[in-house]
Every structure is written in C-alpha cells, then in structure tokens.
Design a protein around this nucleic acid. Sequence first.
DNA 1: CAGCCTGCCTACAAGTATTAGGATAAAACC
DNA 2: GGTTTTATCCTAATACTTGTAGGCAGGCTG
Lengths: 189, 189
Amino acid sequence: MTRAGITPERLVQAGAELADSVGFDEVTISALARQFGVKVPSLYSHVRNSHDLRTRIALLALAELADRSAAAMAGRAGKDALIALGNVYRDYAREHPGRYTAARLRLDPQAAAASAGPRLSQMMRAVLRGYRLGEIDQTHAVRLIGSTFHGYISLELAGGFDHSSPDPQQSWIRVLDALDALLRNWPIE
Amino acid sequence: MTRAGITPERLVQAGAELADSVGFDEVTISALARQFGVKVPSLYSHVRNSHDLRTRIALLALAELADRSAAAMAGRAGKDALIALGNVYRDYAREHPGRYTAARLRLDPQAAAASAGPRLSQMMRAVLRGYRLGEIDQTHAVRLIGSTFHGYISLELAGGFDHSSPDPQQSWIRVLDALDALLRNWPIE
DNA sequence: CAGCCTGCCTACAAGTATTAGGATAAAACC
DNA sequence: GGTTTTATCCTAATACTTGTAGGCAGGCTG
C-alpha cells in the first residue's frame, strides 16, 4: 500500500486549519485521520496523543503570532507600536479563530518556556518603552494591556458585540485610544 | 427499586459544582449519572441532552452573577460602583471558575434574551451613570470595561500571572484605578 | 383498588481515544 | 543488488462518551 506521507508538521498544519474552520474543540484525531484518508491509530506514530496534538497547534499559533508581532513592531514606538500590536492580535484572531483559541491553551511550564510565549511578552514590554513607567508599574501595565486586548478580542469573537451598534471597529479604535491615554497619564497613587 | 429523586434543578446544581471542581469541559452526563448512582440514560428524562445541561448551568451562573452584582451595586456610584462590580466578577470567577466559564457559553438568541445577561448589561451601564459620557461613548465604555474585566479574570484564572511578581491583587487594583481614571477623563477625539 | 404515568432500567448504535502487535514499503547498509 | 532495519500503516481490542428505543414497576390519581 502506498504511504500517505504524513508528518507531524503536516498533521499540525491540517489541525490548525481544521481548528479555524470548525473550532479548536472540534480538532480530533479521528477527523484528521479521515482527512488524510488513513485509519485512526496510524496517527499515533506521529503524535503522542490528543493532548500532544493540541499542544503543538498551540505552539504553532504562538509562533505565528510572535512573528507577526515582531514584524509589525519593527520601527514603531509609542502609540504607533501599541496600535500595531493590538491589531496583530485582533487580526490574527479574526483570520484564525481556532488558532487564536489554541494559543490560549494552558501549557505545562517547560512547554511554555520553550514556546514563543516569552517572545510575545517581550513585545508587550517593548511597547511600554515608549511610555514612562516604573519597573513595577510596567508589570501592571503589561497585565492591563494583555487583559484588554484578550478580553476585547474574545468578546468580539464570541459574538458579544454582534447585535448592538456602533461598529465594533469604532469601539476597538476607542479602546486603543483609551489605553494610550492611560499609559501616557498613568495614575500615581 | 427506590427512586433517586433526581430533578433538573439538582442535576444543574451538581453540574455546576462539578464544573467548579474539574472544569466546565469535564461536565458530562456520565459523570453526573455516576455521582447520582444512576445509569446514564436515566438522566435523559430530566435533561434533553448534553448541550441542554450546559446551557442550564450557564443560565444558573448568569443569574448568580447578576444577583451578586445587583446586591453589590446597591447604593454605590462612580468609582465605588466600578470597583464593586469588578470585584463581583473577579470573586465569582475565583470561587466558581467552572460556572464563570459556563457563563461565557454562547447562547442562542432566545436563551440569551431570557437569561440574566441583559440584567448584567444594565448593571454595567448603571456604573457609567456616575461618569459623564455621551450615548455612543457609553457603548464604547461598556465594551472596554467588559473586555478588561473579562480579560483580566480569564488570564488570571488561566494562571497567566502565576510565575511573575508582583501580586495579582495589586495589579487588579491598578487596573480598576486605571479604568476609573480613564472614564473620568474620557479621551475626546 | 385499578390504572396510568414517570423515573429508572437494559440493550443497542455510533463516535472518539488509546494500546498492542502485525505486515510491508522505503531507506540504510554491506 | 541483496539484505537488514526501521518507520508507517494496518487490524484487533478495550474503554468511555453521547444518544435512542423500549420495558418494568413504584407511587400517585380516580
């Protein structure tokens, strides 16, 4: 019998595309086997188990996100950088909802450390170099920005803004404006 | 054989508790049947299917959240109200992580309309009465606050702040401060 | 007390995850 | 080029989940 030529990479790629089209939760070993025209147990030569597969998709998503972020951030600072980073996250989530969800998968510490996650954190800190914040306030600010980005994107993705005006795009711009204003004028207690 | 005395209410309650202890995704008809010492198909007399069960848990969570919010908001305004509402969300998520996750389940339009969701929206808008915002800006602000609350809580719940100082509690306070400052000084374009 | 309904049951079908072990195509080696 | 090895795919089997169909009997209703 001719071999299907499956590799872990092709599996992860197909898994990522499947996630984007039917949702990350629906990414299943069986569905992938069907797609490759192969029996289910065959995939266990390439991937340890379901969790392993999902983790790899998460790693792919994190890497793609970090790459896009780095490209967008290059040569920008201050509000420009903030907007660029925000748009990278939001656009990625809209283009690849399944992968964006995957990127939020909780990784075990070692996998997390080896992932592109730290690179993303650095990008966030880089944005803050354009604002004058103390060491500790920088951490608070990273958390605020991360929360706001993620919160907005996840609500928008879940359809939370579907049935109400005004245009989410407008709100997004206002959110970025608001974050910038906040960082420029960080409240000191 | 003696009857187990199962009702939809008891099922949903047990499901909510199960969600809090092992995660909303792990709430399964089988697990509940085991817990009630009953065969799996028996539960289908009380609940239409798995989706129905999950929806009901979501409705319970939304109602609890709305009740707590209403209680906390009574007699408060401005920053006080903002902080109270934020803490309700955060505390609820920490006490009942499974239910909080359930509350974010996407409901079909009719279920959503009949849920406590609208009550929660009203609460959010009530907070904004303490700040002077135009009609449209109010919607932007609702989205910003909702995003920030949800984003922060979901990152904290996912353990995103686990391995870095400072204390998340401090960051949370700063986030609330920041939101208040922002609303008081809403950027006009 | 008779009958009916409801709450639980058994039996079954289908989908998914995972392990064990076998067969063979393709690659590696002499 | 032939042989050995390895990796890829297979069948078989177990277990768990959802869901449907239909049966039996405990307890309420007339």
